[in-house]
């Protein structure tokens, strides 16, 4: 939670502070507010908890206590490509945990964390509702059904290649280069 905010995040935080004013100062709004903050910032940095507490006139520790209770709230920035591995019952029966393990091994991070370059993060989720496609992993917003351990490397590789291509293109378009 002690990570520095990026400039972009600081801007978003200002925007969040403005939006906050549209919420009535009512304790029952705490969870909807936290949801709004996370929708904007994609996680809850301590700076955000602070302004939420101020807005509602409650202690920061109280906000922290509530936020840490719920699965939805994250306190670390997710990766650019969040990977969610379904561990619902159907996926479990079809060895979803092996898929999760493979992602963890390939990206060298445990579930719940983000790679140091902030590109990937791994999360386990309960049923995403495509049990017939089990086991399932979701990268960004795309559902990958019938996963197999050997598909994991290919998926990550594909994203990395795509990134590289985009970067190269961006470089070419930058003025003063080439």
């Amino acid at each position: 939670m002690n990570q520095e905010l990026t400039e972009e995040e600081k801007d978003t935080l200002k925007h969040v502070a403005i939006k906050l004013e549209t919420f009535e100062k009512h304790r029952g709004n705490l969870i909807p507010i936290l949801q709004m903050v996370q929708n904007n910032l994609s996680y809850l940095p301590s700076e955000a908890l602070k302004i939420v507490a101020q807005h509602l006139g409650i202690l920061e520790s109280e906000v922290y206590g509530v936020a840490t209770f719920y699965n939805q709230f994250r306190f670390h920035p997710p990766g650019k490509y969040p990977i969610k591995v379904c561990l619902g019952t159907a996926c479990h029966v079809r060895a979803g945990d092996i898929i999760l393990e493979n992602f963890e091994r390939k990206l060298e991070i445990p579930e719940g964390q983000t790679t140091p370059d902030r590109k990937f993060s791994i999360e386990r989720v309960a049923c995403v509702g495509c049990c017939a496609l089990a086991p399932v992993a979701i990268i960004d917003e795309t559902v990958h059904g019938h996963m197999a351990p050997s598909k994991v490397e290919g998926l990550i590789l594909r994203i990395k290649l795509q990134e590289e291509m985009e970067e190269r293109e961006n470089k070419q378009h930058e003025p003063g280069q080439s």
């Binding site: 304790r27 709004n29 705490l30 969870i31 206590g65 509530v66 209770f69």
Partner: peptide, 9 residues
């Protein structure tokens, strides 16, 4: 409890 804005205990 969660609608009231507390930990859902």
């Amino acid at each position: 409890r969660s609608i009231e804005g507390y930990r859902g205990m």
